[in-house]
Nucleic acid binder design. Structure first.
Lengths: 124, 124
DNA sequence: CGGATATTCAACCAAATGGTTGACCAATCA
DNA sequence: TGATTGGTCAACCATTTGGTTGAATATCCG
């Protein structure tokens, strides 16, 4: 027999912020933005530059990332700077590890993952 | 200056299966189902029982979880058994850890997390 | 001041999402 | 056989999502 309370605590009540975080991560454009911000803080226009969609669309994506707590935005002068806030991933990461019980993953693994997924952009 | 290739490898090309996994995790009902399956394999009807939605709705959620690879379904007789497939979380977990660079998370942390999030279901 | 730059707002649109209901199919049981 | 149980399918609906365009709002620069 299964503990049904598990179903309730997770599906009821206030909008779990895991909803927001996972939903934010479900879009490849937003994950790409996060990957870019991993290297440096960026202005909105610069974030938008490599993408083929409008600035307004990117602006919306940034709002979603901000609401999820995954980035913060600070306006200095007329430019708005975007900063990665990796702590927002902690709860989600903990949640996932609870299932996977993976061995601790290190940065090397992440780099390998990037290499595998990366199409040949070094020789354009 | 920022490496824009990072934006492209992530947003272009075939539908990244991180899309599917994160989208699957973004719904609280589906996370609840996964949590239930953490304890035991279950038949579809039993999965549906604690929820207030129709069986058909749950059936759809299970399809989504299956497509994401997060569960597998095997039909024995007239009942279809659902089994957690935690390996599907690995890629997503690696992706997230690349950002957070969290200290290794252990099961204790997960248990604490469950306790915190759990409303008082012990005294109904 | 006036023009350019940075960003958001508002209205709109197509497609995807999450749910419903009722019919349907398969397997079991009496 | 016939009724019941387990589960999906199909059609439908409301809402959300991800994008567009064009106008609006600041801010900086000469």
């Amino acid at each position: 027999m299964v503990d049904q309370s598990r179903a309730l605590w997770f599906s009821e009540g206030m909008p779990n912020d895991l909803d927001t975080v996972f939903a934010a991560l479900a879009d490849p454009t937003r994950r790409a933005i996060l990957a870019m911000l991993l290297e440096d803080d960026m202005a909105v226009t610069d974030v938008a530059e490599p993408f083929e969609m409008s600035l307004a669309a990117i602006s919306k994506h940034l709002v979603i990332l901000t609401k999820a707590g995954l980035i913060s935005q600070e306006k200095r002068g007329r430019v708005k700077w975007c900063k990665l806030e990796p702590d927002a991933l902690r709860a989600a990461s903990v949640w996932m590890q609870g299932f996977g019980q993976f061995e601790p993953v290190n940065l090397d693994a992440f780099e390998r993952f990037l290499e595998i997924e990366l199409p040949a952009t070094d020789d354009p």
